[in-house]
Simulated assay, not measured.
Amino acid sequence: MSRKHFLGTILFLLTAWVVQAQETERQYLSGTGLGNTVTWQFRVSEGHNSGRWSKIEVPSQWELQGFGEYTYGRWYKKAGVKNPSMEEGTYKRSFRVPRNWQGQNVRLWFGGVMTDTEVFVNGQSAGPVHQGGFYRFSYDVADLLKFGSNNQIEVRVKKHSDNKSINAAERKADWWLFGGIYRPVWLEAKPATH
């Protein structure tokens, strides 16, 4: 083998190793969308099927799964109606995390939740309450996880935001207002250095 061929082989192997080492792994805690859902435990505070633990498909809106109340966006135009439906939903489920993710950067991603979202992993807060229902958000949860073991996630969702500007932008409109985890939820692991 010539020196040039040998160096080329070494360079190729190093490049392949670096590319493999930089690979991001994803684990869905929900389904990936319409027609592909995962069952979670669920309880809603008001409306249909409220006040007791039940099951719900994620992602979805809880009204379309038989929970809470339907609210039309122009509720504020109705005489005598001070507030829209103010349900709060709590989601729970258990999941396992691969042992080989330990030492990696692990983020918990939400594709979209309507509207205020508070997240707990193994009983500990994952971070500040997220407000706003139309964009994805994430939390660094590496320090909260039990690798190679069972973990618990709890997600508390307020259909109506505590932030008045979000309500003005997202709630006072000419459309139906739905609550819940309506886009996928997943864990994403990357090497600590990436």
Rank of each mutant, 00 (worst) to 15 (best):
W62H: 09
V19S: 08
E63N: 01
S54V: 07
G66H: 04
L29H: 02
V18S: 13
S54D: 15
N49D: 05
T37Q: 12
I10G: 04
L7M: 13
W53N: 02
H48V: 13
E25F: 10
H48G: 11
R26G: 06
T24H: 07
W62N: 09
G68M: 00
S60G: 06
W62Q: 04
A16D: 08
G47I: 00
G33I: 04
T37K: 14
I10C: 14
E25Y: 08
Q61P: 11
G31N: 06
G47A: 03
T9M: 14
T37R: 11
V19D: 06
G35R: 03
L34F: 09
E23R: 12
R43G: 02
W53Y: 07
I56F: 06
W40K: 01
L7T: 10
E46K: 13
V58N: 02
H48M: 15
L34S: 12
G8S: 15
A21T: 10
S50K: 00
V44H: 06
L29P: 01
S60W: 05
I10D: 02
R26T: 15
F42E: 03
F12M: 13
Q41R: 14
G31P: 03
Q65L: 09
H48Q: 15
G51E: 06
N36I: 07
S45M: 00
P59A: 01
L7F: 13
V18G: 10
V18W: 08
I56M: 00
T9W: 07
E46V: 12
G8P: 00
L14P: 06
G51I: 00
G8W: 11
Q22Y: 10
F67R: 02
L13G: 05
S54K: 08
T24W: 11
A16G: 05
T37H: 04
G66K: 15
L13V: 12
Q27L: 15
V58G: 00
G47K: 02
W53L: 02
L13P: 05
W62E: 05
G68Y: 01
T15D: 04
K55P: 03
L11N: 10
W17F: 13
F42G: 03
S30R: 03
T39D: 08
T24L: 08
S60R: 04
Q61N: 14
E63D: 09
S45Q: 07
V38N: 09
L14G: 13
I56T: 04
E57S: 13
T9P: 00
S54G: 05
S30T: 00
E23C: 08
S50R: 09
L64I: 10
N49L: 10
G51D: 07
V19C: 04
S45V: 07
E63F: 07
